[in-house]
């Protein structure tokens, strides 16, 4: 299984960084080789270019950027979704990781 790179985007990258910690923990428990990181909306573009991102998840408060990102990712085959509200509110690392893995799977 190849390494999964998961990028989370929110306004300042603050709230999602907590989520990253939780997701990393679950990934480690399950033995999934992954790189999970959170960035602010303005840093997202650089990271799409520099890292080979497998999936992009948006915090619900920046869901308005979805269309923008869809355009940017167009043709790159990188799936994109807004994080489920309940999971986000609870910072549920497991569920969000599942969401990310499902998206990677579907994109294949």
């Amino acid at each position: 299984m190849s390494k999964k790179t998961i990028m989370l985007v929110c306004s300042a990258g603050m709230s999602t960084s907590l989520l990253v910690t939780k997701m990393e923990k679950v990934a480690a428990e399950r033995g999934i080789d992954s790189e999970i990181f959170a960035v602010s909306a303005s840093d997202a573009d650089n990271n799409i270019e520099s890292k080979s991102v497998d999936v992009l998840l948006l915090g619900p408060q920046v869901r308005f950027m979805k269309a923008q990102f869809e355009k940017k990712l167009d043709g790159k085959g990188i799936p994109l979704e807004v994080i489920n509200m309940q999971d986000y509110g609870m910072m549920n690392g497991e569920k969000v990781l599942d969401q990310a893995l499902r998206l990677i799977d579907e994109a294949k």
Partner: peptide
Amino acid sequence: LPIEVKVGLVLHLAFLMESMKNGKEVR
């Protein structure tokens, strides 16, 4: 506003206030 956005905003604000308290630099 969709409820998910509102929840997101609350979280964002909570973290924002914490980082203001910590004197983090401003973007």
